Simulated scan of single mutants.
Amino acid sequence: MWQQIIVGLIVAAALLHASTKYLPAGWRRRIVYALARRGLDEDKLAKFFKVQDSCGSGCGSCGSCGPGADSSAPPSPPAARRVIKLHVQR
């Protein structure tokens, strides 16, 4: 009997891990919304299921639009682009 309980807990943990990592983002948002309606903390669930916005304002940017952003600072230079050269052998 203990073996069945332990196996059930392992399967439940594996299902939880798979649902937080491999489900589409829309499904994860629905799960968070459904669990939040039942009284659980929505912010913690969103963080656990990895569906929270990156800066909290909903824009999903890097946070440069936040209240601490300095508009008088010069813009950072663009990232260097790397080129991968392919040599085709025929």
Results as ranks from 00 to 15, higher is better:
Y22W: 08
M1F: 11
A14F: 05
A25C: 00
C62V: 05
I84K: 07
Q4H: 12
D53V: 00
S76G: 09
H87G: 06
V51F: 04
F48K: 09
V83N: 04
R38H: 11
Y22K: 13
G58Q: 03
V32E: 01
G39R: 02
L35F: 15
A13P: 00
T20C: 11
E42H: 14
V7L: 08
A13R: 05
G66D: 12
Y22Q: 08
T20G: 09
D70F: 05
C65A: 02
G63R: 06
A36L: 03
H17T: 06
R29G: 05
D41C: 09
R37N: 08
G8V: 04
P24N: 10
G26I: 08
C59R: 04
A79F: 00
T20Y: 01
Q89V: 10
Q89A: 15
V7I: 05
A25F: 02
P24D: 14
C65D: 10
W2I: 11
W27H: 07
C59L: 03
G68K: 12
S54A: 09
G39E: 09
I84M: 12
P77H: 08
Q89L: 14
L40P: 05
A14I: 11
D43N: 06
G8K: 12
A14P: 01
D53Q: 03
A80G: 05
D70L: 03
Q89H: 14
L35K: 02
A80I: 10
S57E: 03
P77I: 02
F49R: 03
V11E: 14
C65R: 02
A25D: 09
A46H: 00
P24G: 05
A34W: 13
D53H: 06
Q89M: 07
P78A: 09
H17G: 11
F49S: 00
S76K: 15
R28N: 06
R90Y: 13
I5P: 00
P75T: 14
L35H: 02
D70K: 01
V32F: 01
G56F: 04
A14V: 15
S76M: 09
S19W: 07
R28V: 07
W27K: 10
Q3H: 03
D41A: 11
L16I: 11
D41F: 04
I84E: 07
W2F: 11
S57F: 09
A69G: 12
L86P: 00
K21E: 14
K21M: 06
R29A: 04
A46Q: 10
C55H: 01
H17W: 13
V11R: 09
Q3L: 10
S76N: 05
V7T: 13
A73L: 12
K85M: 09
C65Q: 07
A34H: 02
A18P: 00
V11Q: 11
R81I: 05
H17F: 12
G66F: 01
G39D: 04
P77Y: 10
R28T: 01
R30A: 15
L45F: 00
R90K: 15
D70C: 12
V7H: 07
E42W: 00
P67L: 06
A14K: 04
G58N: 13
P67Y: 06
D53G: 14
V51S: 01
S71E: 13
Q52Y: 08
K44H: 06
V83Y: 09
P75D: 03
R90P: 08
G26S: 15
I31N: 00
G26E: 15
